[in-house]
Design a protein around this nucleic acid. Sequence first.
DNA 1: GATTATCGACTACAGCTGTAATCATTTGAA
DNA 2: TTCAAATGATTACAGCTGTAGTCGATAATC
Lengths: 124, 124
Amino acid sequence: MSKPSKQISQAELDVMDVLWAQSPLAASDVAERLSEKSWNIRTVKTLLSRLVEKQVVGTEPDGRRFLYSPLVSKNTYAQGAVRKLTNRLFGGRAAPLVAHLAASDGLSDEDIAELEALIKALKQ
Amino acid sequence: MSKPSKQISQAELDVMDVLWAQSPLAASDVAERLSEKSWNIRTVKTLLSRLVEKQVVGTEPDGRRFLYSPLVSKNTYAQGAVRKLTNRLFGGRAAPLVAHLAASDGLSDEDIAELEALIKALKQ
DNA sequence: GATTATCGACTACAGCTGTAATCATTTGAA
DNA sequence: TTCAAATGATTACAGCTGTAGTCGATAATC
């Protein structure tokens, strides 16, 4: 999967989540998996079209309809998003970001244990 | 400082950065400190007005002009932004976020050392 | 075969965002 | 005193976003 060409909006990201969980899917399947949003099927189709335009979702014909698949992995997207935020807010430094999570009670003991293991691994 | 009422856009955030660095400031001072953006002073004033509308920036009269100050601290804003991202992408878990930074070469030795100290502190 | 449901393409429209311009007023300068 | 510069308020306008509707074609159903 290649470069995230364009900005993905919030609603579009909800659609991406569905495709990241399973793909390829037809528009109607995507809509079904987003039922808790109670979006009109038209809305889902518009979002899919925009994602295709932005080249982050690809299509393959299936009869007279399309099946949609992500062209950008969730990993790639997440990496970009995290990096963008740290650059924007903390001059690229990571520690303040974790410190902010800690400060807002955002770290469970489990999180802390995971982080500890991760740090140990990063030190080789 | 209180709750971040509304969404702050990218350009607006550039303005907030200036006010977070120093405040109160007049619009012209803000514009001056954003010279590398080569924005028209009108643009800066529009952004300031929108931030005031959104109640994240306050004003005090100074003669016939205003002096602007943040009503939301950078800390508060950053905390919200980090939390929002982790919730959206990782179900609220922090470790994957740090792992993503690591994966994209985003962690210097210094970062890792800082994180290690932070984790130690978090464990009491 | 006739009607209905569904599909993709195109269009709509309001609110947000980036990027200003205009206007009436005031203030500072000549 | 007169005129230019600067101010806040209001307005502009295109592109993005959320949330659909319309249309012509096709597929599925009766």
